[in-house]
Design a protein around this nucleic acid. Structure first.
Lengths: 222, 222
DNA sequence: AATTGAAGATTGTCCTACAATTTTCAATTT
DNA sequence: AAATTGAAAATTGTAGGACAATCTTCAATT
């Protein structure tokens, strides 16, 4: 049976909607890394023909969430710890650029918002509310990248984040020490508030590299 | 008897081949930025049906070379000077990471190759051979990124380079002062040879930012 | 238990078809 | 002449059937 939602939202093209939905399913963990994705199953799920499905899969392949093997089909991409580490390195540099750019152009309003995120995370830590912490944490990072005013940067950063979710979804949640992490956030935000691009760049890079180390340590233990 | 063509089709699907060919045509300037790409024309050119063509176009869209507008078709992407500048910023940071990584792991062999490129460019400058300079210049950059041992980085960097070609193809070739540029190359390579990651990182970033300034200056004059 | 081989499933591609939308271009009006 | 309109033509977006090539499955055989 065709999903009614698909019918309603005609503003975006069908392959785009399908792409988003498949992506959502993958990132939510319903399809696990290594799983094969069956075209016919998708046609049944979405009530479309194979054309739009295949187009959506092509697009997802470029975004690094799936892998296509000729004559065998597409599979949810599987990341090795090494690949995850490589992504972290790139992410660190992109995030550093975001911090630098934002430090050069942040408005008072934006700085206030940034401080709000950090304060919210402090509250979450006090309340031992991990869920809230993760939400605010994500929002802060998102905000920084989005307000750096460089869509190319934002696009590449987002792509890395999605790929990392592929890794983290399975390898257990980061018991990413919230205190340490938010101390780093504090430094990032204050560097931006001080309009100090070099300091902001360094703080943002250090934050991601620190997260990388924590993840590597976790992976080592498991 | 497995002919080479058969082997080729085994590893690369038809949409992939079509994608590469369309990309080649775009980057060569046969399709200019803003041009509409007609599906039927492509089916005639490649002798295939619309399916593989559409898949290839989807993939090219993710790589940023074309733009899809619902019900209107795909167009070769057009970059504004601002977008080009944004790409340069991201590229600078990615290239800086490449320089850092290579400084940490370059073999004697690799260092010798790097020095070879720089020497070749010095020769090209002496002979006023711009074509050769550009070839060697491209090869040096390619080599550095490829040998940084981070495929994620290489992929994103390559994607940016392609997008920049979109811009430069029209906005005339960089009369990128070869002397200045190669002096920077020299510093990059010697920083790598000295196994000094910080120095290499800085040199690589400075080189791209310097190229960005030269391009902006050119754009301002035209 | 390992191997083999036939049946079934899946991918990759082509083809035709058609509704929706956009583009073209000539006729008409201002 | 310039702008507007509107019908014809072209193009996109999608469906669905078809079929060869290839892969997967699984039961029969060694």
């Amino acid at each position: 049976m065709p999903t009614p939602e698909i019918e309603l939202l005609k503003s975006r093209s069908l392959p785009m909607l399908i792409e988003e939905e498949i992506q959502r399913v993958i990132l939510s963990g319903q399809y696990a890394p290594g799983d094969r994705i069956n075209e016919k199953e998708l046609t049944l799920r979405f009530g479309t023909s194979r054309g739009p499905i295949r187009e959506a899969l092509r697009s997802l392949e470029s975004s690094g969430l799936i892998e296509q093997i000729p004559n065998r089909g597409v599979f949810v991409r599987k990341l090795t710890p090494e690949q995850a580490a490589q992504i972290y390195d790139v992410r660190a540099f992109l995030f550093a650029l975001a911090g630098r750019l934002l430090a050069m152009r942040a408005s008072e309003q934006e700085i206030a918002t940034l401080r709000g995120f950090v304060a919210a995370m402090d509250e979450a830590i006090a309340a031992d509310d991990t869920d809230r912490y993760l939400r605010e944490n994500f929002a802060l990072h998102e905000f920084i990248v989005a307000h750096a005013a460089n869509p190319v940067l934002a696009g590449q950063y987002l792509s890395l984040i999605k790929q990392l979710q592929l890794y983290r979804a399975r390898n257990l949640a980061l018991v990413d020490s919230m205190q340490v992490s938010n101390r780093e956030h504090h430094e990032m935000v204050e560097a931006i508030a001080a309009r100090d691009p070099d300091r902001a760049q360094a703080a943002h890079m250090a934050h991601v590299m620190s997260a990388k180390r924590r993840l590597a340590a976790n992976a080592g233990l498991s």
